[in-house]
Amino acid sequence: MNWLSDITPPGIKKIFRNQSDSGDTLWTKCPACSEMIFNRDLEANLHVCPSCDHHMKIDVTERLNALFDDGKWKKIKLPEVAVDPLKFRDEKKYTDRLREYRKKTGEEDAIVIGVGKVDGVTTVVAVQNFAFMGGSMGMGLGEGIIRAAEEAVSRKAPFVMFTASGGARMQEGILSLMQMPRTTIAVQMVKEAGLPYVVVLTNPTTGGVTASYAMLGDVHLAEPGALIGFAGPRVIEQTIREKLPEGFQRAEYLHDKGMVDMVVPRKELRETLGGLLRVFTRHGVKAKPAAKPEKKADNETSNVTSLPAPTAKANDTVSKSGQDTDGLDKAAE
């Protein structure tokens, strides 16, 4: 909100809004502060409003380009799945809907998987595509997550999952629900391999997606203002017959309630992730202590000195990092 919108009567505001929305593709209006932003500036700012920091939706490919070092990454093909096993039809045929979204997005399903380096660390990154049927979770997405987990395990690389979804894909019925345990297995595979699994919750993440792989991360990061919850706000309002408090189910709220480790602005995400991934993937690398620990006289502390010495500084001379099988990671430092 700026001072102008505070003093302008709603009717007048509406007139201007209609004018500014019509046809002009060079500019985008921020849905939060109504500021008009030049599209090129918006892209350069990763679709975050330069005036109010509102995080708008960002295209999946743009996100991956921005995340991976030098914008370089390899796309992993989604496994093929049975198409429309229920022969589902609502007001439209499911196969028609699928075709429509495939054409619109150029993707096979609501997830894109990439592998590349994030701040020097080879990482498998999966991004849910909200533009593809609301990022809904069906068999294609479930198999995609399993595939991404397998890729992470075979490369001994961390797995970073960007969530964005309205929940289950109803057109796949029970097979959609079964992706909750199936994606949970994918997370277990990564964890059992001793690899970090980091979730980045983006706007919105709700339903069965939140209640499975989105809430099982070693670390949960979230973008500012992202709506994150199990039940949608409308359903809750209908159930409790009350208006929900301001900020309910937003990233900051989940942080306060202990469900999210950090709310990270999009522009800082790469750096935050990089730091986390370096720490997690190099935890086994032993470094020589900078100085000899002081010997103390009493027995208690002499026990302590027999433990591995604290890492004072990452030491590059030790190359066995426990990840990196393909040599991609050598330039990390």
């Binding site: 949970t184 277990q188 939140t210 209640a211 809430m215 994150i228 199990f230 039940a231 929900l244």
Partner: peptide, 26 residues
């Protein structure tokens, strides 16, 4: 279905369901 209430969300309904599923599988 799981209860869609304010308190349930506040206390991490999604996390509880996810972890319970994970427990079943493990």
């Amino acid at each position: 279905g799981a209860y869609p209430g304010l308190g349930a969300e506040e206390r991490g309904q999604a996390e509880a369901i996810a972890t319970c599923t994970e427990k079943c599988l493990g």
